[in-house]
Write a protein that binds this DNA or RNA. Structure first.
Length: 300
DNA sequence: CGGGTTTGACCAGCGC
DNA sequence: GCGCTGGTCAAACCCG
């Protein structure tokens, strides 16, 4: 019953046969946060990334503002297409861009959606992206929105393996994008975590994955030999550990020159691949999940 | 047969 | 108020 059975449940099946290992699929890995978001995400997770990606951050910020003029601490949805091109068309392959603040209590009738009951039921009213800002707009009278974490990954496979099992419950065509957006829900009945997967219309090789919610259970195991997407697992596991413990090739240090960023990635990834991981994880004596899933939650 | 995927329909929020 | 769009449901279908 491991994911190994169905490597790519909702994926397009692209390279679903051999390249599962994100390590092999992910060409580059790169994270960055909006400078403002930094205060929320980075600080929250103990990150202290003084990025010199100021321009990019600026772009993202702009996007943030565009996406939700009235959003304050709301999710920063990845721009669907055009506006995003600016920053993600670069050598950036992966970047957690959005994060919603804490779950806000709200309408009891729908709040249940956030904790244990299948949120979709209440959400039958339709979740929609708008809700994100809406919940805040409407002064918390709206549904509870789980924390979100989105990132972009350069990968051939749509559905990145993250150690959890997902069931696809919907697919929608995205405006201005030839690629549909897939909706997945954690197969664990008690788990309300959802995720959306879509490809960038600008760069089909980029997969945008957005996780929502927090797993209340451990992973189901490693797929096919134990390779998972570290970033995916990280997100799927919902930031259970300070990210500062991770090592992201793409994260640049102040003063560091980006020119060889790509090369650097290739180098590091090359090394990482030798370790069957796309991202080298220090202190990962327990495997990739070592930094993601608390020991108590781990299966092995 | 059970679990997962597909797909059309429905609903609700948002912008104009 | 209306149309658009995103998100979800649920029945049908597929597959191991």
């Amino acid at each position: 019953m491991d994911d190994a059975d169905k490597p790519d449940p909702g994926g397009t099946g692209i390279n679903s046969d051999s390249s599962w290992t994100i390590g092999a699929d992910v060409d580059r890995v790169n994270y960055f946060f909006p400078s403002d978001g930094e205060s929320s995400i980075l600080s929250e997770f103990g990150w202290n990334l003084q990025s010199e990606n100021t321009e990019r951050l600026g772009d993202l910020q702009r996007i943030e503002a565009d996406e939700s003029s009235d959003l304050a601490g709301t999710v920063t949805e990845f721009p669907e297409t055009n506006s995003s091109r600016d920053f993600w068309s670069s050598d950036m392959a992966l970047l957690p861009g959005s994060y919603v603040g804490e779950v806000s209590a709200s309408n009891p009738s729908v709040s249940s959606s956030s904790s244990e009951d299948p949120p979709e039921k209440s959400a039958g009213s339709g979740g929609k992206a708008a809700e994100i800002s809406t919940q805040i707009k409407k002064k918390g009278q709206k549904r509870v929105r789980q924390p979100r974490f989105a990132f972009m990954t350069k990968s051939d496979v749509d559905h990145l393996e993250d150690g959890y099992r997902w069931r696809k419950y919907g697919q929608k065509a995205v405006k201005n994008s030839p690629f549909p957006r897939s909706y997945y829900r954690c197969t664990n009945s008690k788990c309300t975590v959802k995720k959306r997967v879509e490809r960038s219309s600008e760069d089909p090789t980029i997969v945008i994955t957005t996780y929502e919610g927090q797993h209340c259970h451990h992973t189901v195991g490693f797929p096919r030999g134990g390779i998972i997407s570290h970033e995916a697992a990280f997100a799927a596991g919902h930031l259970t550990r300070p990210m500062s413990q991770f090592y992201y090739p793409g994260v640049q240090l102040p003063g560091e020159n980006p020119p060889s960023n790509t090369q650097l990635h290739q180098q590091q990834l090359g090394q990482a691949r030798d370790r069957t991981s796309s991202v080298r994880v220090p202190n990962s004596d327990d495997g990739l999940l070592g930094d993601i899933v608390p020991r108590g939650m781990r299966k092995r």
